[in-house]
Protein backbone atom coordinates (compact mmCIF):
# COMPACT_ATOMS: atom_id res chain seq x y z
CA UNK A 1 0.00 0.00 0.00
CA UNK A 2 1.20 3.37 -0.93
CA UNK A 3 0.67 5.63 2.03
CA UNK A 4 1.22 8.79 0.02
CA UNK A 5 -1.64 7.98 -2.28
CA UNK A 6 -3.97 7.09 0.58
CA UNK A 7 -3.14 10.22 2.53
CA UNK A 8 -3.63 12.37 -0.54
CA UNK A 9 -6.99 10.79 -1.24
CA UNK A 10 -8.05 11.11 2.41
CA UNK A 11 -7.08 14.75 2.48
CA UNK A 12 -8.89 15.34 -0.78
CA UNK A 13 -11.95 13.69 0.69
CA UNK A 14 -11.76 15.97 3.72
CA UNK A 15 -11.45 18.99 1.49
CA UNK A 16 -14.37 18.02 -0.69
CA UNK A 17 -16.42 17.21 2.39
CA UNK A 18 -15.80 20.69 3.75
CA UNK A 19 -16.33 22.26 0.36
CA UNK A 20 -19.82 20.90 -0.16
CA UNK A 21 -22.67 23.35 0.48
CA UNK A 22 -23.41 23.66 4.16
CA UNK A 23 -24.89 26.10 6.60
CA UNK A 24 -21.58 27.59 7.84
CA UNK A 25 -19.92 29.26 4.86
CA UNK A 26 -16.52 29.56 6.67
CA UNK A 27 -15.97 25.80 6.62
CA UNK A 28 -16.35 25.84 2.86
CA UNK A 29 -13.42 28.25 2.54
CA UNK A 30 -11.27 25.90 4.58
CA UNK A 31 -12.42 23.06 2.39
CA UNK A 32 -11.53 25.01 -0.74
CA UNK A 33 -8.09 25.69 0.67
CA UNK A 34 -7.46 22.05 1.53
CA UNK A 35 -8.72 20.94 -1.84
CA UNK A 36 -6.53 23.37 -3.73
CA UNK A 37 -3.53 22.29 -1.71
CA UNK A 38 -4.22 18.60 -2.22
CA UNK A 39 -5.02 19.06 -5.90
CA UNK A 40 -1.93 21.16 -6.51
CA UNK A 41 0.21 18.77 -4.52
CA UNK A 42 -1.26 15.80 -6.35
CA UNK A 43 -0.58 17.30 -9.74
CA UNK A 44 2.92 18.28 -8.73
CA UNK A 45 3.58 14.78 -7.43
CA UNK A 46 2.14 13.34 -10.61
CA UNK A 47 4.38 15.46 -12.79
CA UNK A 48 7.47 14.56 -10.71
CA UNK A 49 6.54 10.91 -10.98
CA UNK A 50 6.03 11.17 -14.71
CA UNK A 51 9.32 12.91 -15.17
CA UNK A 52 10.96 10.09 -13.25
CA UNK A 53 9.38 7.56 -15.56
CA UNK A 54 10.33 9.58 -18.61
CA UNK A 55 13.90 9.82 -17.54
CA UNK A 56 13.99 6.10 -17.07
CA UNK A 57 12.64 5.46 -20.53
CA UNK A 58 12.14 8.60 -22.58
CA UNK A 59 9.26 8.28 -25.03
CA UNK A 60 7.58 11.68 -25.02
CA UNK A 61 3.84 12.36 -24.82
CA UNK A 62 3.67 14.48 -21.69
CA UNK A 63 3.02 18.15 -21.84
CA UNK A 64 2.49 21.13 -19.66
CA UNK A 65 -0.94 21.53 -21.16
CA UNK A 66 -2.11 18.39 -19.48
CA UNK A 67 -1.36 19.77 -16.03
CA UNK A 68 -2.92 23.13 -16.75
CA UNK A 69 -6.16 21.76 -18.14
CA UNK A 70 -6.31 18.93 -15.62
CA UNK A 71 -6.16 21.53 -12.85
CA UNK A 72 -8.85 23.61 -14.53
CA UNK A 73 -11.04 20.52 -15.08
CA UNK A 74 -10.79 19.30 -11.50
CA UNK A 75 -11.29 22.77 -10.12
CA UNK A 76 -14.33 23.52 -12.22
CA UNK A 77 -15.80 20.06 -11.50
CA UNK A 78 -15.48 20.75 -7.79
CA UNK A 79 -17.08 24.14 -8.33
CA UNK A 80 -19.97 22.48 -10.16
CA UNK A 81 -20.78 20.10 -7.37
CA UNK A 82 -20.26 22.57 -4.58
CA UNK A 83 -21.86 25.75 -5.88
CA UNK A 84 -25.18 26.50 -4.19
CA UNK A 85 -26.63 28.18 -7.26
CA UNK A 86 -27.43 25.81 -10.13
CA UNK A 87 -26.94 28.48 -12.77
CA UNK A 88 -23.39 29.12 -11.64
CA UNK A 89 -22.79 25.42 -11.43
CA UNK A 90 -23.92 25.09 -15.03
CA UNK A 91 -21.53 27.82 -16.09
CA UNK A 92 -18.67 26.09 -14.25
CA UNK A 93 -19.68 22.99 -16.12
CA UNK A 94 -19.08 24.89 -19.37
CA UNK A 95 -15.57 25.57 -18.13
CA UNK A 96 -15.17 21.89 -17.30
CA UNK A 97 -16.27 21.02 -20.83
CA UNK A 98 -13.81 23.43 -22.35
CA UNK A 99 -11.00 22.04 -20.22
CA UNK A 100 -11.94 18.52 -21.12
CA UNK A 101 -11.99 19.27 -24.80
CA UNK A 102 -8.56 20.88 -24.43
CA UNK A 103 -7.38 17.68 -22.80
CA UNK A 104 -8.81 15.73 -25.73
CA UNK A 105 -6.83 17.91 -28.07
CA UNK A 106 -3.66 16.87 -26.25
CA UNK A 107 -4.73 13.34 -27.14
CA UNK A 108 -5.06 14.21 -30.84
CA UNK A 109 -8.84 13.73 -30.75
CA UNK A 110 -9.71 16.93 -32.56
CA UNK A 111 -13.06 15.89 -33.84
CA UNK A 112 -14.29 14.61 -30.49
CA UNK A 113 -13.00 17.75 -28.82
CA UNK A 114 -15.05 19.97 -31.10
CA UNK A 115 -18.08 17.70 -30.87
CA UNK A 116 -17.82 17.79 -27.08
CA UNK A 117 -17.97 21.56 -27.09
CA UNK A 118 -20.79 21.67 -29.63
CA UNK A 119 -22.92 19.06 -27.92
CA UNK A 120 -22.16 19.73 -24.27
CA UNK A 121 -21.57 23.44 -24.14
CA UNK A 122 -23.79 24.19 -27.10
CA UNK A 123 -26.74 21.86 -26.69
CA UNK A 124 -26.91 20.08 -23.37
CA UNK A 125 -25.81 22.94 -21.20
CA UNK A 126 -28.19 25.33 -22.89
CA UNK A 127 -31.00 22.91 -22.13
CA UNK A 128 -29.85 22.76 -18.52
CA UNK A 129 -29.81 26.50 -18.26
CA UNK A 130 -33.28 26.68 -19.74
CA UNK A 131 -34.60 24.20 -17.23
CA UNK A 132 -32.84 25.93 -14.39
CA UNK A 133 -34.40 29.22 -15.36
CA UNK A 134 -37.76 27.54 -15.85
CA UNK A 135 -37.76 25.90 -12.46
CA UNK A 136 -35.96 28.36 -10.26
CA UNK A 137 -37.01 31.20 -8.08
CA UNK A 138 -36.82 34.62 -9.74
CA UNK A 139 -33.43 36.20 -10.12
CA UNK A 140 -31.91 37.90 -7.12
CA UNK A 141 -33.77 35.69 -4.67
CA UNK A 142 -31.59 33.67 -2.27
CA UNK A 143 -30.81 30.10 -3.23
CA UNK A 144 -33.29 27.45 -2.16
CA UNK A 145 -32.72 25.57 1.06
CA UNK A 146 -32.10 22.28 -0.73
CA UNK A 147 -29.32 23.93 -2.72
CA UNK A 148 -27.66 25.56 0.24
CA UNK A 149 -27.32 22.44 2.38
CA UNK A 150 -26.17 19.18 0.87
CA UNK A 151 -27.52 15.86 2.06
CA UNK A 152 -25.36 13.28 3.81
CA UNK A 153 -22.09 14.79 2.55
CA UNK A 154 -19.97 12.58 4.80
CA UNK A 155 -21.33 9.28 3.51
CA UNK A 156 -21.24 10.49 -0.09
CA UNK A 157 -17.63 11.64 0.18
CA UNK A 158 -16.52 8.54 2.07
CA UNK A 159 -18.04 6.14 -0.41
CA UNK A 160 -16.87 8.05 -3.47
CA UNK A 161 -13.32 8.45 -2.27
CA UNK A 162 -13.23 4.86 -1.10
CA UNK A 163 -13.94 3.92 -4.69
CA UNK A 164 -11.41 6.43 -5.96
CA UNK A 165 -8.73 5.16 -3.59
CA UNK A 166 -9.44 1.60 -4.62
CA UNK A 167 -9.23 2.43 -8.31
CA UNK A 168 -6.06 4.48 -7.98
CA UNK A 169 -4.50 1.80 -5.85
CA UNK A 170 -5.38 -0.78 -8.48
CA UNK A 171 -4.00 1.41 -11.24
CA UNK A 172 -0.74 2.48 -9.79
CA UNK A 173 0.29 -0.30 -7.47
CA UNK A 174 -1.22 -3.52 -8.74
CA UNK A 175 -0.97 -3.39 -12.50
CA UNK A 176 0.51 0.04 -13.08
CA UNK A 177 3.79 1.83 -12.58
CA UNK A 178 3.94 0.94 -8.89
CA UNK A 179 3.93 -2.76 -9.59
CA UNK A 180 7.09 -4.78 -10.09
CA UNK A 181 8.16 -5.23 -13.69
CA UNK A 182 6.42 -2.09 -14.94
CA UNK A 183 8.00 -0.74 -18.10
CA UNK A 184 7.30 2.75 -19.30
CA UNK A 185 6.62 1.72 -22.87
CA UNK A 186 3.48 1.38 -24.90
CA UNK A 187 2.49 -2.26 -24.63
CA UNK A 188 -0.57 -2.00 -26.88
CA UNK A 189 -0.61 -4.30 -29.89
CA UNK A 190 -1.20 -1.58 -32.47
CA UNK A 191 1.39 0.61 -30.88
CA UNK A 192 3.98 -2.14 -31.07
CA UNK A 193 3.04 -2.86 -34.68
CA UNK A 194 3.36 0.81 -35.56
CA UNK A 195 6.65 1.05 -33.74
CA UNK A 196 7.97 -1.96 -35.60
CA UNK A 197 6.78 -0.53 -38.89
CA UNK A 198 8.41 2.79 -38.12
CA UNK A 199 11.65 0.96 -37.41
CA UNK A 200 11.43 -0.81 -40.74
CA UNK A 201 10.65 -4.31 -39.43
CA UNK A 202 7.89 -6.35 -40.97
CA UNK A 203 7.30 -8.89 -38.30
CA UNK A 204 4.97 -11.78 -39.07
CA UNK A 205 2.99 -11.40 -35.83
CA UNK A 206 1.96 -7.87 -36.89
CA UNK A 207 1.26 -8.71 -40.51
CA UNK A 208 -2.54 -8.66 -40.20
CA UNK A 209 -2.74 -5.48 -38.18
CA UNK A 210 -3.62 -2.17 -39.72
CA UNK A 211 -1.93 0.79 -38.08
CA UNK A 212 -4.00 3.82 -38.86
CA UNK A 213 -3.16 7.26 -37.74
CA UNK A 214 -5.21 8.16 -34.68
CA UNK A 215 -7.46 11.16 -34.32
CA UNK A 216 -8.36 11.88 -37.88
CA UNK A 217 -12.01 12.26 -38.75
CA UNK A 218 -11.54 9.96 -41.70
CA UNK A 219 -10.34 7.15 -39.47
CA UNK A 220 -13.12 7.71 -36.99
CA UNK A 221 -15.74 7.87 -39.72
CA UNK A 222 -14.52 4.71 -41.37
CA UNK A 223 -14.51 2.95 -38.04
CA UNK A 224 -18.00 4.14 -37.15
CA UNK A 225 -19.54 3.22 -40.48
CA UNK A 226 -17.83 -0.12 -40.81
CA UNK A 227 -17.44 -1.73 -37.37
CA UNK A 228 -20.18 0.16 -35.59
CA UNK A 229 -22.66 0.80 -38.39
CA UNK A 230 -25.52 -1.00 -36.65
CA UNK A 231 -24.73 0.60 -33.30
CA UNK A 232 -24.67 3.98 -34.97
CA UNK A 233 -28.11 3.42 -36.44
CA UNK A 234 -29.33 2.30 -33.02
CA UNK A 235 -27.89 5.45 -31.49
CA UNK A 236 -29.92 7.42 -34.01
CA UNK A 237 -33.04 5.52 -33.04
CA UNK A 238 -32.22 6.12 -29.39
CA UNK A 239 -31.96 9.85 -29.95
CA UNK A 240 -35.23 9.92 -31.86
CA UNK A 241 -37.00 7.95 -29.14
CA UNK A 242 -35.55 10.20 -26.49
CA UNK A 243 -36.71 13.26 -28.35
CA UNK A 244 -40.25 11.92 -28.76
CA UNK A 245 -40.21 10.77 -25.15
CA UNK A 246 -39.10 14.16 -23.92
CA UNK A 247 -41.88 15.85 -25.88
CA UNK A 248 -44.48 13.44 -24.52
CA UNK A 249 -43.25 13.69 -20.96
CA UNK A 250 -43.02 17.44 -20.75
CA UNK A 251 -46.24 18.17 -22.62
CA UNK A 252 -48.79 19.89 -20.42
CA UNK A 253 -51.62 17.37 -20.27
CA UNK A 254 -55.03 18.80 -20.89
CA UNK A 255 -57.06 17.29 -18.07
CA UNK A 256 -59.32 14.52 -19.38
CA UNK A 257 -62.92 15.27 -18.48
CA UNK A 258 -63.39 12.12 -16.45
CA UNK A 259 -60.37 12.58 -14.25
CA UNK A 260 -60.77 16.24 -13.53
CA UNK A 261 -57.28 17.29 -12.58
CA UNK A 262 -55.52 15.34 -15.31
CA UNK A 263 -52.79 14.48 -12.88
CA UNK A 264 -52.22 11.50 -10.76
CA UNK A 265 -53.32 12.11 -7.20
CA UNK A 266 -50.40 13.25 -5.16
CA UNK A 267 -50.27 11.88 -1.65
Amino acid sequence: MDCTLLIAVALGALGVFLLLPRAQASWRKLGALITVLVGGGGLFYLSRWAELQESAAPAGGLSLYFYIFAAIAVGSALAVISHPKPLYAALYFVILTLATSALLLTLYAEFIAIVLIVIYAGAILVTYVFVIMLASTPGGAPAAEYDKVSADPLIAVLVSFLLLATVLQLMFHVSGPGSPGFMNTNTGLHARALMAANLGYHLPQFSGIKTPAVGGMAVLGRNLYSHYALSLELAGVLLTVAMVGAVVISRKNEPPAALGSGELPTE
Binding site: V159, S160, L162, L163, T166, V167, L170
Partner: peptide, 9 residues
Protein backbone atom coordinates in the same frame (compact mmCIF):
# COMPACT_ATOMS: atom_id res chain seq x y z
CA UNK B 1 -20.93 2.54 -5.41
CA UNK B 2 -20.08 1.02 -2.06
CA UNK B 3 -20.83 -2.40 -3.53
CA UNK B 4 -18.46 -1.79 -6.45
CA UNK B 5 -15.77 -0.54 -4.07
CA UNK B 6 -16.13 -3.61 -1.89
CA UNK B 7 -15.88 -5.92 -4.90
CA UNK B 8 -12.78 -4.16 -6.19
CA UNK B 9 -11.25 -4.24 -2.73
Amino acid sequence: VAGIAVVVL
